[in-house]
Structure formats: structure tokens, C-alpha cells
Design a binder for these strands. Structure first.
Lengths: 201, 201
DNA sequence: GTCTATAAAGGGATAGAC
DNA sequence: GTCTATCCCTTTATAGAC
């Protein structure tokens, strides 16, 4: 019995998603260069050749993944913007979410590990929807929020670029090594409080 | 006219150093997996084959480099320990040095970029003198200094592991993206002050 | 001690059967 | 739509001349 076109679409979509998901973990674990297409195929549970019916190259999987992740980062930012809270509170929510998400959902960490690859393969920026790290949605949101907090007098009055860079370092460092918080049974709430302490007026 | 044995030793040492230096930049720029031995040879100004007379494999260059860097990190820490200053001052000096060194000497950044590769090739830890990132000398020094500062009442009284992790994130993030401070003409002194503000009692 | 040339292996990408 | 088998290029590592 032949498959309906709709069924075919569903199958194709499912396979593509599987491959992307496999790519995310394989790239995050090994890095772009060391990741093997055979690993991705295996992790996705499909044959080696099938990967190439959905993606033309290893790079393309990587690029598509990162663009998808930028998109969901945009959604996250939209949610955060909808919250009617003070700038300082918003910073607190962002970092709390960053830290607690880590526990439940490893995607955030994988996301950063992928972005980190761009440090070693900068030519890929050309193929991405977002052209530099400053344009990353969460990064942008933090920057705006800092400026708002300075206007409202909640946040310390130094060059907001300096603050956002420092917060960016924390986010970057955390996302790369955040699992250690939980391995060592530390309280992420304390760490967020330290951050707030640093920028509160 | 034949070379003396001493001269030979000098040549060999020089060549080895050249290759290591080339390896540092090539690995830092491209990552371990994407770095090519031919790139290292070219950067070192020697023939492809010669690299293998001094090192048995690409991995070995990488391992030797990292071990050398750990050693100089140890020296740096010894110097910092010799300074007779308060714990809080010491933290300030460490981060100031971290930030200003960046300007003059890129080795620090390259060092971190190499260490970062271990995230993607964790099996290499087995071949290193230092067995995990917590044992990295500067990291250790910060940890000790935080505890001293808590005893002397200068530094905020929360789990020192939490503080040191956060400071570690900053150092990691900075070393990966620190060049941006200078690209954007920011004042690194302000950033150090923020860090102190965060941990000062 | 240094080079060029070559062997050997690994992995990305494709062809073609089912 | 999916698979297996194969091509082919890149890169590691070695051999052997100078």
C-alpha cells in the first residue's frame, strides 16, 4: 500500500529533525571538525547515506542547527520581554533561568558549545542569520535591560557595554562549565545573588 | 666544517621551540582537530617532515604545549603568592593582570583557547600533568585567596566554591572574548571594580 | 639535521540498487 | 525514502635521499 503525500512529508520532517538533534549532541560533544557524519547518522538512527538526502554537507547541518537555535533564542527573549518586571528583576530572571534550565534541559549548554565553535570557524558567520555574537538575542536583551535599569536608577552607572560584556563572560563561562555547579552540589541562587550584588546601585 | 655537539643541541632546542610556538597559534586559531600539521610546519618555517623528528604526533605537540603552559602558570602563581597584600587586593591584582596582560601578550588568551579544546577532547587529560581544570594553578590560587579573605572578613561569606566558580566563568569568558574590551575601547579597570564590588563584604 | 616524495588511513560525499 | 558500496580527496605519518 503506497504512502500518502502527507505521510511522506511527516516522515521526511521527522527524519530531518532526528538528524538535527543528533547533530546537536555530536557537534557539541566533539566540535565541528572532529564530528563525523557517521557519528551523526548513528546517533540519529539512520544510515550514513540518508544524511545526505536531507543535508548537502556537514557544515550545512551545523548552520541550520545554529539558525534554529537563534530562532528559539528569539522566542525566549520575546517571553522575557513580556514580563512586567523591573530591569534588575529581569536580569535576575534571565540568569536564574539560564542556571535552572541547565538542570532540566541541556539544550542551552549545547547551544553555547555550538556557538563556541564559531570562534574556531569564523567563516561560518557568513552563512548564519545572525552576523555576530552581539546580535544574539539574549545578549541584546541584557544590553537593553542594563540601560533601562540605569535610567530608572536601579543599576550602577558605568558604561553599559562594560557591564554587558562582564555578564556575557559569566553567561559564556557558565554555559561551558555550568554542569559543575550541579556536580558540586552548589546553590545557583547564591550565584545569581552575587551577580545582582555586582550591578545593583 | 662539522658542527659541535653543543651547537647541535642549540639548533635542536631552537627548532623544537619554533614548532611549539607555531603549534600554539595554530591550535588556538583552528582548534585541535582542524589544525593541520602542514600549517604548523609552515608557521614554524620548517619542512613538513621535520615536525615529526621532534614530535611523534599532532596530539603530542598539543600535550607538550599545555604542560608547558601549566608550568608557566605555576610560576605566575608563585609570584602572586610572594606579594604581601590582602586577599581582596590579590584578587584585584589577579584580574587586573589577566586583563592587562591581554594587551601586551596574547599568550594568556591562547592558553585558554587551548584549554578549551580539552572540553572537546577530554581523553587528553590523561596525558597532562594537571588532571582537571580545578587543579589549574591560578584557579587554585583564587580558591585559596577567597577562603583567606573570608577568614579575614574582607570577602562575602558564601560557599567559596560558588564564588570561585563565578570568578572562573569570568576568567574563562574574558579569555575567550577579551579582545572585545579593547576593540570597543572599554575600560578594563571598571570591570575589575565590578568584580571586587561583587565579592567585597 | 633537514628535506621531498610516498605510503596508509580516514572520512566526506556520491552512485546506484531496492 | 532508505540503504550499501565505493569514490576520492585530504591529511597523518613514514621512508629515504642529501
Amino acid at each position: 500500500m503506497p504512502r500518502t503525500p502527507e505521510e511522506n512529508e511527516r516522515i521526511k520532517k521527522d527524519k530531518k529533525e532526528r538528524i538535527l538533534k543528533a547533530g546537536l549532541t555530536v557537534f557539541a560533544e566533539n566540535g565541528l571538525a572532529a564530528a563525523k557524519m557517521s557519528d551523526i547518522a548513528q546517533a540519529a538512527g539512520v544510515s550514513y547515506g540518508l544524511v545526505y538526502t536531507y543535508f548537502s554537507s556537514k557544515e550545512q547541518i551545523f548552520v541550520e542547527l545554529l539558525n534554529d537555535l537563534f530562532a528559539s533564542s528569539n522566542e525566549l527573549v520575546a517571553q522575557l520581554k513580556n514580563m512586567k518586571i523591573s530591569p534588575l528583576e529581569r536580569i535576575k530572571v534571565i540568569f536564574t533561568q539560564l542556571f535552572t534550565m541547565h538542570n532540566n534541559d541541556p539544550t542551552g549548554e549545547l547551544y553555547y558549545r555550538l556557538m563556541l565553535q564559531l570562534t574556531f570557524h569564523p567563516h561560518l558567520w557568513d552563512k548564519l542569520l545572525i552576523k555576530d555574537v552581539y546580535s544574539e538575542p539574549v545578549f541584546q536583551l541584557i544590553f537593553e535591560t542594563i540601560k533601562q535599569g540605569q535610567q530608572s536608577g536601579e543599576i550602577i552607572d558605568i558604561n553599559p557595554q562594560e557591564i554587558v560584556l562582564l555578564l556575557g563572560y559569566i553567561a559564556l563561562g557558565f554555559n561551558l562549565r555550568g554542569h559543575e555547579i550541579f556536580e558540586n552540589d552548589l546553590n545557583e541562587k547564591n550565584i545569581v545573588d552575587l551577580i545582582i550584588r555586582m550591578i545593583k546601585k
